[in-house]
Nucleic acid binder design. Structure first.
Lengths: 181, 181
DNA sequence: GTCTATATAGGGATAGAC
DNA sequence: GTCTATCCCTATATAGAC
């Protein structure tokens, strides 16, 4: 089931909501169209929601977990950056929620999207507060972090240069810690 | 024809390439499906290309033009920010090319997209060079500008808060001129 | 230059056998 | 839990009248 969700997620990320046809989803999972309806009775909308929940868990495990535990703030942020690069496969994979924004899955996914962005900003700003940043600064830098990650994915795809995504993400710890250590 | 292209562009920006059905395009323009084929013999792919060229001109007129002529670098950059906010309707409208990236118009639009991003980076870095920035700094800040604009559009849409887009764009001149005046 | 009508393919979704 | 077969709808695209 984990594997099916990953395969479905890939299709959504590559083609957007409208472009994720049952044929493509069927091909990606190796399941017949009808079998997909066994797992997801409400069809595509169902799959999109399941994938959103699945991705949210993965982000927690692979990215946010790096901000907790031992180590200096800088070490945590560098782990955070590594987690992001892994998660987006070095810039080769799109953000699922960003892909949904631009293709009409909006209605069903509006809440998950909002909560996801809010959580990113909270997590990043919290660690900056702990490092001694003022609240305004922490919030501004956290928002900037999310913007740059999303933007860097688009730029990397436009330039057909995934490396530029990695470059941007590796810059984040320095930007976030400016004047704090 | 200008008007038709604007109407078509809106559909692509709202629904992405796959979501821009001929029915929607027909409704948006007031033209019958068949009439659209009169103007764009190759159908959707044709429209997407025409819109890309049209948008490129608009960006030139409404945004990049602000970086030329009289005034201090700061004044130019503030005009630039205003142009961006107008162009994206205060964060309410998506970027056409970003919408295409995530929905399969890729093949046809790969080159326009690449040229567009490259031009943004060139234009912004050039004005920083003129203001005395080192080349590395200018390029990094220019890339960051494009990333933040793209990212801010996604964040604004996710949070259902167009205002946050405007806030980010208004921050750009300060960020770009840091240490240069 | 716009329309009606239509051809053909593929979309999402369900029934029922195994 | 997966399949084949099928339904209905919408999509893209074209022909030809006006």
């Amino acid at each position: 089931m984990e594997e099916i969700l990953d395969q479905i997620a890939d299709v959504f990320r590559r083609h957007g909501y409208e472009g994720a046809t049952l044929s493509r989803l069927s091909a990606a999972t190796g399941l017949g169209r009808a079998s997909l309806y066994h797992h997801f009775p409400d069809g595509k909308a169902d799959m999109a929601q399941a994938v959103a929940a699945h991705m949210s868990q993965n982000v927690m495990k692979q990215i946010f977990s790096r901000l907790e535990g031992e180590g200096s703030t800088r070490q945590k942020l560098e782990g955070f950056a590594s987690g992001i690069i892994e998660f987006y496969d070095g810039g080769a994979k799109n953000c699922f929620l960003a892909a949904m924004t631009l293709t009409g899955g909006n209605t069903v996914l509006a809440e998950p999207m909002q909560r996801s962005v809010t959580r990113w900003i909270e997590k990043v700003s919290r660690i900056l507060l702990e490092a001694g940043a003022e609240e305004k600064v922490a919030l501004r830098r956290a928002r900037m972090t999310v913007e740059r990650i999303q933007g860097a994915l688009i730029v990397a795809r436009s330039l057909n240069d995934p490396q530029s995504f990695e470059t941007t993400v590796r810059e984040l710890p320095d930007m976030l810690l400016q004047g704090l250590e």
